[in-house]
Design a protein around this nucleic acid. Structure first.
Lengths: 218, 218
DNA sequence: CCTACCGATCGGTAGG
DNA sequence: CCTACCGATCGGTAGG
């Protein structure tokens, strides 16, 4: 049981300085989170350079200078979108793998889990963050790119043993390192053409991808 | 043996009006072609919005307003890069197929020709035009996008019967339409990670891609 | 193709 | 978080 706080208290306590940058407390009062989501949507639709900070401010009902109260610069906002996207993707992938653990899936089954989750992260609801990371990497600093590369390694880590097992078993014919790059390409490119409102479902997409890479899923 | 022309003659004959827009005569005097190549390189490296027309002008040794003597607008320059890229890619693909005709390749062999040529267009020398088309499509008008889509259909046309034959023969397990999208994704994404100076050659890349999609090439 | 220039937009900031 | 603002940059043009 939590202690009720008068609604005005939260407003009254609002600090004068820059708010904490951590993504804790994503409640309704979280203007930073709104900025992040709106920025992700606009960066994806129009690109980073073609999106003005005024566009983003207007999308959340702020004045033109106000985003800089929450983010040091436009670039910091872009990077925050990307990092948030990667951390969320890693978390969701971990969850999906843990959920499937009970069924003790074989390598093909684990690849299915990974691909299905990847499509979800890429094409599901609220899926602007990862496409922004994939297609706007040019606009961040080398330092930021290096940090993101670490998160990407973390994300790809569970794929490696799965692909190696399939390669040993003769199901995956291509060499593992290049296979991984080609497979991620095939999946990531779907962000360019997939239309949620028509065509295949994410399950069907997953089926066909599995068939393409390792033949029938049996 | 060519007839020597006094260096001043070319300069003296330079026309006063807008030069013809066709890509004929790509000789050394072709400033338009230089603009196109420099624009392609800059658009690829920095993105369309982050590249100023001044950058492009400087890259070919012109003053800031001069590109507009050759192209009506910055957007027209971008579109010209894309269209030139597609027409060249279609031509090269036709040539590759005709060259291979003599060996009367089967479907797997024809797929190899197509993939190898695609990697060449995408990753070979002077290969900025197609990546620009792939990654800057947001910045052109719907009308221009429609025209480019026609050229892309023309480019993809030879792939369809090949993939259908492989599907019928049981070599390609995935459904043809989705397989095509996933395959192009795998190939196109290589523009993001391939480094000509290290790693696999384009032949090796082609081999592994074939293995991934239809198993050993035998 | 150069010179000289304009209007618009943009990221960012001071001060409250 | 708003108000008011600045300096810089940019696409594009007139006139030669």
């Amino acid at each position: 049981m939590e202690i009720a706080v008068p609604p005005s208290a939260d407003v009254a306590k609002r600090p004068r300085g820059r708010p904490r940058k951590t993504a804790e407390d994503p409640g309704d009062g979280n203007r930073r989170g709104e900025l992040l989501r709106s920025a992700a949507r606009l960066f994806r639709r129009k690109g980073f350079d073609a999106t003005s900070t005024r566009d983003i401010a207007a999308a959340v009902g702020m004045q033109s200078g106000s985003p800089f109260y929450h983010f040091k610069s436009k670039g910091a906002l872009l990077y925050a979108v990307m990092e948030e996207g990667m951390r969320s993707a890693i978390d969701r992938q971990q969850m999906a793998l843990l959920r499937a653990e009970l069924a003790a899936p074989d390598a093909a089954g684990r690849l299915r889990i990974l691909i299905r989750n990847h499509f979800d992260v890429l094409l599901g609801p609220d899926s602007d963050f990862i496409p922004v990371m994939l297609y706007e990497a040019r606009s961040i600093t080398p330092r930021q790119r290096a940090t993101l590369a670490q998160l990407q390694s973390e994300y790809e880590a569970p794929w490696v043993p799965v692909l190696e097992a399939l390669h040993r078993g003769g199901r995956l014919k291509a060499e593992v390192k290049l296979a991984r790059l080609l497979i991620f390409g095939a999946l990531n490119w779907s962000a360019q053409w997939y239309d949620r409102r028509k065509g295949a479902s994410l399950d069907e997409l997953t089926n066909e991808a599995i068939r393409l890479f390792i033949g029938d899923a049996t």
